Computed example of a mutant assay.
Amino acid sequence: MTFDVFALRPHIIARMSDRWIDVAPRVWVRRLEELDQTLGLVIGDDCCLVIDTGINAEAGFAYATAIREKTDLPWQVAYTHDHFDHWFGTSAFGESAIWAVGDGAHYLRVGDEARKIRAASYRREGREEEARRIARTKLVPPNCRVSGAIGLNLGGRTVVLRQVGLAHSDTDMVIEVPDAGVLFAGDLLENGAPPSYDGAFPYEWPQAVEYLLSWKPSVVVPGHGDPADYWWARAQARDLAEVARMCGEVAQGFLTEEEALAHSPFGEAPMRAALDRCKALTPPPPPEPAVPAAQPQTPPPPVIVYDVFDYSVDLTQR
């Protein structure tokens, strides 16, 4: 259904610095000042797909208002993953299909925890209004689960929603627009900031990105920062692989942590986070085999000593 955001919140407007970037025919990127975030919009003949919705309800209303300047088609929503800044703005979009990896119960659980943590963080920074905004934001979990890959027909255009597997998170999903050569990568890739390894899977992450780039998209849209090209994405995939290699060498004792921190392609803080995450994911070593309890010793059998007599037999005697 089409949702009239103007009637609901006419006073909500986007920040003046927020802007649209036209990356392909009927494929748009919305660049936000807050968190340097990058959202997406893919327009078909019958409906449009909204890719991520922002950090709170107010940000979502501003985004929905901006979308209505581009199209009045009904929309569907896709979450690239479960981190709060990518889906807390969805209440602005009313009733719609919401696609994601992971079920609604998971999103509500992690979302409620993230909302409390973020509100407390804002208050510590003295940003009371931001704390109130996120605290009163209604969480809207996904209602359409993606497992594997799903082709979504927008009318005259099909986009592919693809489950990634373990990478930046365990709920990563990318959106491929094959007819436009565009890949929406979520936070698998970031432009202008290092990747976040909190809750990530450092060993699997670069492998996932390499696979997703195998169709060589012309435009790659990160979760934060400006869109870039295929070769930029390949360079970042190599850096992700270098972090994974160094984590493995530290675990095997070939490198010290200090050496890894000094030579990380992303800097010291992301490398430390990756090392800590690898330690957290490594199962503890198996326990040492138990030494069997000493059994009571039975006395050895007696040793019989035979006396040997030296004697001779006189065979002449009868």
Rank of each mutant, 00 (worst) to 15 (best):
T137P: 12
P141H: 05
N143C: 03
L189G: 04
M173C: 08
G151K: 06
V164W: 00
Y197E: 04
Y211G: 00
I150K: 06
D187H: 13
I175C: 05
L189N: 05
C144W: 04
E210W: 00
A200E: 03
P206A: 03
V221I: 03
N191S: 14
L139K: 05
E129R: 12
V164L: 03
L139D: 06
N153A: 15
N191L: 12
P206T: 06
Y211P: 01
F201Q: 06
G155K: 04
V164G: 02
R162S: 03
E130V: 01
G156F: 13
V182Y: 01
V177L: 01
V146N: 11
D172Y: 11
G165P: 08
I150T: 15
I150C: 09
E176M: 13
D187A: 04
R132Q: 15
Y211R: 03
L161P: 02
L152Y: 07
L139E: 05
V209E: 05
S214E: 07
A135I: 10
W215K: 14
S214D: 13
P217E: 13
L189S: 05
L188C: 03
G192Q: 07
Y203E: 10
G186L: 02
D198Q: 15
A193D: 01
Q207F: 04
P206N: 02
L213T: 09
P222R: 05
Q207T: 07
E176A: 13
H168M: 08
T171C: 11
V182G: 07
V182R: 07
E130D: 15
E190Q: 12
E190D: 07
G186S: 02
G186P: 01
L189R: 04
L154R: 01
V209T: 02
V219Y: 14
S218V: 13
A149N: 00
A208I: 03
L183A: 05
T171H: 09
D172C: 13
V164A: 03
I175Q: 00
A131Y: 14
P202E: 09
R145I: 15
P222K: 06
I150Q: 05
G223Y: 06
E190S: 13
Y203C: 01
D179H: 00
E204H: 10
G223A: 06
G148K: 06
E176S: 13
V160H: 12
K138L: 13
T158I: 12
F184G: 11
V174D: 07
D179E: 15
A200C: 10
D172R: 08
V174L: 10
L161N: 00
F184R: 10
V219F: 04
A180S: 14
L166P: 01
P206Y: 00
G192F: 06
R162N: 01
V209Y: 01
L161E: 02
G181F: 05
P227D: 14
L166N: 06
